[in-house]
Amino acid sequence: MIDLNTLNGETPKANIEEFGPGDTVTVNLRIIEGDRERIQAFQGNVIIGSYMSGHTPSPTDTFTVRRLSYGVGVERIIPFWSPNLESVKVTRHGKVKQSRLFYLRGLTGKKARIKERRLPVKK
């Protein structure tokens, strides 16, 4: 039997920390410029998608990260399985009620803030 979920490998190659919508993440992406390869960091809020360890995303699954860059909203849709995805680091957990934060698209400045969700300190 051919398993569509393992065509690209067993799990995504990238080193991904658990995250959910509202979290601020740093996404390290491989950028190829001519012959050179470098890592570019993209930091922003996750507005769609989540990653839980123990749950392998499907090869078609993506997540969306939004940031304001020089006053312009920039969203990147990133496939979990992309070979160009190096790692995802969580810098801040956000407290949100929606799973898809489309309301952020119409907001700027103080209204576009997301309240921080502080996790209990692990012993």
Binding site: L4, N8, I32, S58, S82, P83, N84
Partner: peptide, 21 residues
Amino acid sequence: KVGMTTYYTDDGRAVPVTALE
């Protein structure tokens, strides 16, 4: 026909593919 999915090439492109047995 097994079904459709996304296949990632080595150079990082996502290709919509149909898997055939």
